[in-house]
Simulated assay, not measured.
Amino acid sequence: MDKLNILVAIELIVVFFSLFLSCFLLTVKTEHKLSNRLFASFLVLTAIDTSGNIFDFLNEGPSNFGMFRNLMIFLQLPTFYLYVLSVCFTDFRLKPRHWAHTIPFLLANLVLIPRFYGVNLDAKLDFLQKISSRPEIQFNHILLHVQVICYIVAAFMILRKSRRIYLENYAGASIASLNWLFQFTVALSIFYIIALAKNIFKFTAYPEISEWLKSGLIIFELIVISWYLFKALNHPNLFRTVDSKLKLVKDIVLEEGKSELAPVNENAYNVEYLKLKDYMSDKKSYLNPSLTIKDIADDLGIPVRDLSLLINHQLGQHFYDFINTYRIEHAMEILKDGSKSKVTVLEILYEVGFNSKSSFNTAFRKHTGTTPTEYRKGLKNSDL
């Protein structure tokens, strides 16, 4: 089996996995239908882009459809970016203004109308024979490179903002999901950076390097799609989102003016802090795994804005870490209780408000410098 046939076989696997996962996302029962539809669209576009060797294997000669298929790559990252928005923010909706993301795709096709789409087969062949020197192709490559950089940066900015909003307002397990989406975006960024390098080498004196990178990209794409498929099948409701209308504390501080916060409202914050401490001790609301800052603010009769400033600004601690501190201290009390020595670590983490072992271990190590299991062993050894 020659190299081309091997690549076609790998492409077929990637296309199958992409389409299989897209069907799964479109049919699985979930509250996050928009997110699933957007990612399914991204996977279909990925399958179309990956099928280059398959398309060339089945067709002879250039065609308008073949060029149009190639240029659909301009829709991939905009679709992924919209997917990231839908995952991060619960109130995200597709709006007419989002059609602006198709502008690069339309431009890339428009510049090819005079000398490719609108000419006969012989003219198409002549155009492709000197494709690397054609200004239309050079324009499209520059446009694609700029698009990739802009959307990758924008995706990371959205993830960073949503993570900070989550830490300041929520105390559930979604942070692990946001971290995983960040990892997937990193993997996707690496893929596109290698793809850009491939395109650059394509127009140099070393086109063979471009071909090797192309082969490596197909294999890398198979690994990434398989990774996502594994995650999706095991966690069909992977993400919980945050409210995009929530403001970061640093923005609230800037709005109100830093000089006004400390001296003017110090007494009020002291009163609110005492109320908060008594509330946490009496109500033990931190045992609620899906607790939000709004839940506590409603119970205390304090505006969410003021409570957020108290915890995230005055106390210098994210709400997420603030709540986890109470959870870890409660877990430590259980671990110290000799009558509960038979209670497993898994049972303890659920009892104190966590709903994943990884987030519990991370928070416990951050608070104590050790894992729950090591902490319990240390207590036993000290009693001997």
Rank of each mutant, 00 (worst) to 15 (best):
L188V: 11
P104N: 11
I113S: 01
I103E: 03
N169S: 07
L178I: 13
L144C: 01
S189N: 13
M157H: 11
W180N: 09
R134F: 04
A171P: 14
G172D: 15
P114T: 12
A108R: 05
L94R: 05
V87L: 03
A100T: 09
A123C: 00
A176L: 14
I131S: 11
Q138F: 08
R115Q: 12
T102E: 02
R115N: 15
K130S: 12
L178C: 09
K161N: 09
G118N: 15
I137L: 07
Y117S: 09
H98Y: 12
V119I: 06
L75N: 04
I190N: 08
M157W: 10
T90S: 09
R115V: 12
T185G: 04
I190Q: 10
R134T: 12
A173K: 14
L128Y: 11
V87E: 03
H141Y: 09
N120I: 00
N169T: 11
I103W: 00
F191R: 03
S133P: 00
L143R: 02
L143C: 01
Y117A: 06
I137K: 00
N109A: 07
L143D: 04
A100I: 14
Y166Q: 02
T102L: 15
L75M: 14
S133N: 08
S189M: 13
Y117G: 02
W180V: 13
L188T: 15
K95C: 09
R93F: 06
N140Y: 00
L167T: 12
M157V: 01
R97M: 14
A195L: 08
F127V: 14
H101R: 04
R164I: 10
V111C: 10
T90M: 02
L125W: 02
V87K: 02
I165M: 08
F156A: 13
I142W: 00
L188F: 14
K124N: 08
E168H: 03
Y151W: 09
S189K: 13
